Every structure is written in structure tokens, then in C-alpha cells.
Simulated scan of single mutants.
Amino acid sequence: MDIKDRAQGAIVGAFIGDAIALGPHWYYDLDEQHKDYGEFITTYTNPKKGRYHEFEKAGNQSQAGYILKLMIKSLIENRGYNQEDFCKKLDEELFTKIDGIPTHGPGGYTSQSIREVYRQRVEQKLSWDEVGSRADTTEAIERTLALAVKYAKSPKKLAQTISHNTFLTQVDDIVGSMSVAYGAVLAQLIQGEKLDKDISIKLMKLVKEGKLPFHAVTSDNFKPPKPGAKDPSNIGLFASPDALLSPSYMAQAAKDKDIKIEPAWKVSLVYGMPCAIYHILPASYYLAARFDNDFESAILQALNGGGQNQARSILTGALVGAQVGLKNIPERFIEGLNEKDEILDLTKKLSDIIE
């Protein structure tokens, strides 16, 4: 595999994760999910009447996929991140199609942060510099993962663009740090690194080199600061490096023979089924490390865990897609996408401009 194949795997994996969870999205009662879809879902499904995406069809993208496409188109057209252009796309191609009501808009449902920013931009007439929400979800990651692909080899640019884009809609520093950390992990996988116990050591090396804006006081390999050091700390945009340290622990748990989560979809019960970023990321890291060479198992286990399974599937799909590459994603998942041709075209064009 080369970097382009892994990059394409990441993007297509995210789109697959989005579409495959469209039907059984947000079932917090697993008995109800099993009643509607059976004990284990294996493919794209139609949403049931009265559910979040009830007017969509199996294989469609949700609004998360729609916004991800806007991001990729902006990156391709500008050959890089242009915040003014991306904001213009949201104003003209998204906000003209929603009305602030959760169940309206492309994909059948509009998320919290987007609803709040819509009201600020359209109803309150605020500038983009004045908007933002306190939503503690993964909504920013679901679009900025494209920035992680574009800047897979440029960690400083990756951190800068992801943080700037995240803060357009979510202004919580913890959400910002965890979103940048996910992008940094994804970029490492696109470069061919493994999601294992050493991933955080590699990320912290980038912190020490001033390429990732996280605070750090330890010396190499998390040893105490060296005695007599004039200023051992690295003061970054984000106060704590913990978002960079978490992936290693999830990877260790996934490979530890004494830690058993069976079936694997019950990771959603271990780390939590709700939408908050601190529930979704640990489960996604765990599944992506456990099924690092098995896209089908990873995406289906993420899907069947219930709750916010769409975000879990998007994030897991990107991480595992980056590890296996596009050529090793089972064809049936790609063929099931109703926007397959457009997605593959955008994916290829984005992989051609990686820096």
C-alpha cells in the first residue's frame, strides 16, 4: 500500500460508516434495535418510520456525509484549506437547506452544533468570527478528518487547520484538543504507522519538536523532567497532552488477552453509548486497534453497538480504512453507497494533493 491508497481508504471508510448507520441510528434501547433490525446488522438498511432519518434510503449519506463532501470539495478547489471558502459553502449550500429544526435538512437530521451556528448566522446575523456552540460531540471530527488526509505529512498544518475549523462550530478547548488528536492519529496511520501502544510516543515526539500544539512537561518516553532543565515544559495551544496519550491505552486494551469485550460491539457499553466525544473516541480507537486488518468486522461492530453508532462508525471506518487501504475494503460496502461514483472521484482527487 502507498499513502494514496491508505488516504483513500480513510475517506471511503468514513463515508461507509456514515451511510451504514443511517437506518439504525440512535437506538439506546438495544432490544428495540434488535426487534427492528435483528440481532446483528450486516449491511445498509432503510430507516424505520418515525426514526431520525426516516425519509432517507439505505446507502444514502447523512448530513455528516454531506458536510464532509463540502469540505473535500473546498480542499480540492483551493488545493488546501481555505476557511473563507468553506464557510461560504456552509452559508450557501447547507444553511439554505435547513431551518434550525433537528429533523430537517440534507440527510434527514441536523446536529446540535450546526443548528446553533445556523441560528447565529441566519437569524442573529452574526459574523463567522462570533459564532460557535458548546456541543461536546464529534461533529467537527466528522468533517476535519479530510484535513487529516490533506495534511497527513504536515502535522503543524494539520493541527492549525483542524483547530481553526473545529472552533467554527464548537468552541470547547477539550473538544478542540481531542479533535486535533484524532486527526493526528489518522495522519500517522495514513503514513503507515500502526495503531498500537507506541502511537502516543510518536505523537509526543511531534509535540517535543513543536509540530503539535500540546502542553508537555515529561522528557522522552514519559520520563520525569530532567533535573536542572531550564524550562522542561512545552506550552501549547492545548493545556494537556492526554488526548494524544489515550489512543495507546485503547490499543493496549484491544490487544491484551486478559481484557475481553465479547462481542466487540459491547465496547459501546464499556465506554458509553451517548454522543459526547469522550464516549465515541475511546470506542473507535479500541475497535480500530482490535480489527486493524479487518474493515468488515470493525465497521459492523461499531455499527451494532447502538447509541451514537453513526459517529462511532464514521470514526472507526476512517481509522481502519487508513490501515487496510481502499483496495482492502470489501467491495460490497463500496457498491452499497448510493453516491459511490462521486465519493470515489472526490476521494481520488483529494489523495492527489496530500502534503
Rank of each mutant, 00 (worst) to 15 (best):
L269D: 11
A253K: 12
A283W: 00
Y285M: 11
Y249S: 15
A254C: 05
V267G: 08
M250P: 05
K266Q: 10
Y249P: 11
A254E: 02
P263R: 06
A253M: 13
S248T: 01
A253S: 12
L244Q: 00
M250T: 05
Y278L: 15
Y286R: 05
A288E: 05
L244T: 00
A251T: 01
D256K: 09
A289R: 03
L287G: 04
A251K: 02
P247W: 00
L281N: 03
Y278F: 14
Y271C: 13
Q252Y: 11
Y285V: 03
I261C: 11
Y249H: 14
H279V: 07
K257P: 11
K260Q: 13
M273A: 10
S246H: 13
V267D: 07
D258Y: 11
Y271R: 12
S268G: 07
A253W: 06
Y278I: 14
G272N: 02
I259F: 09
L244S: 01
H279N: 09
H279P: 07
A253N: 12
K266R: 12
D258C: 14
W265Y: 06
I280L: 13
M273F: 04
P263I: 02
P282D: 06
A254F: 00
E262P: 11
K255S: 14
L269K: 13
Y278G: 15
A288L: 07
P282L: 07
P274G: 08
W265T: 02
I277S: 01
Y286W: 04
R290G: 09
S284K: 08
L244R: 01
M250E: 08
F291R: 03
P282T: 02
Y286K: 06
A288P: 03
A283N: 02
M273E: 08
Q252R: 15
K266D: 07
H279Q: 11
W265I: 04
K257C: 13
L269R: 12
Y285F: 05
S248P: 00
Y285W: 04
A254R: 01
S284Q: 08
A288S: 10
K260G: 13
P282G: 07
V270H: 11
I259E: 13
K257R: 15
S268E: 04
L245H: 09
S268H: 04
I259T: 10
Q252V: 13
I277W: 00
D258Q: 14
Y286C: 08
V267T: 06
I261E: 07
A288Y: 00
M250H: 08
S246E: 15
L287W: 00
D258T: 13
D258F: 12
A289W: 00
C275D: 10
A251I: 02
S248G: 04
P263W: 01
L269V: 09
E262A: 15
E262F: 11
S248F: 00
Y249G: 15
R290Y: 04
P247E: 05
A253F: 07
S284A: 12
R290E: 10
P282H: 04
G272I: 01
S284E: 06
A253E: 12
A251V: 01
I277A: 03
S284Y: 01
L287N: 03
H279C: 11
S284T: 04
K257V: 10
I280Y: 03
I261N: 08
K257F: 09
K255Q: 14
D256E: 09
